[in-house]
Write a protein that binds this DNA or RNA. Sequence first.
DNA 1: TATTGTTATACTCTATAACTATA
DNA 2: TATAGTTATAGAGTATAACAATA
Lengths: 119, 119
Amino acid sequence: MQRFLHHFSVVSLRPTEYSVLALIAENPGRKQSEIAAALGIQRANFVSLMNDLEGRCLTERRSAPNDRRSHALYLTVSGENLLNHARRAEADFEADCLERLGGARARDQFLALLSRLFS
Amino acid sequence: MQRFLHHFSVVSLRPTEYSVLALIAENPGRKQSEIAAALGIQRANFVSLMNDLEGRCLTERRSAPNDRRSHALYLTVSGENLLNHARRAEADFEADCLERLGGARARDQFLALLSRLFS
DNA sequence: TATTGTTATACTCTATAACTATA
DNA sequence: TATAGTTATAGAGTATAACAATA
């Protein structure tokens, strides 16, 4: 966690915020509840998270065309720009982890063991 | 975490509480601040934890002989009994993890990779 | 002056219930 | 009747500041 925050300090994003931006980028226009559910976040807790991202002008809530209850989520241009910076931060972070583990082979072993443990 | 709580539900102990009981058992008479520091818990947060364990009659705070500021920590007889049950729960939990990982060799690899990642 | 235990406080993460407006 | 977003609230976990008693 400390290392993640170190690498992501340039974009001021926490893990959850990064995952939200990345998921909206790949699924623009989805409902709040869909994005929240996909990340295992309860919709009640997702509201303040989206308020924060919107307050930082990274995301937009537009009214959905079919269902007037829903909010369709989109990234703003600044949101897309920040996401690009964040992706570079993630690449650095992963390279850091890869080096600590001792290479791609060790990383694959590690991920395989993790998935066994949590299956 | 879910699996830990499943195995430890018989003793109603959370990870931190188990580690506190185990550490006091191996170091009876140590000060609150020593036990807290050894577990990386701040002494301010350790107070309510010890209040709870004492309220369940698992630990005792006795006045230290040399330093009247300190509390020397001990397990009660019930505390020792519960710790024995908890140790069986831990053995079950570890056996569960071992089986998921695929044996002792896989576990040793996993722990080696973990220590590389967090070194 | 410094340390021990303590209280108060605050911030994050997570969980549930209930409200509103829509469907 | 059910769903989407929201609000309020509560419980853990963790962090800091400050106080009284003692060293």
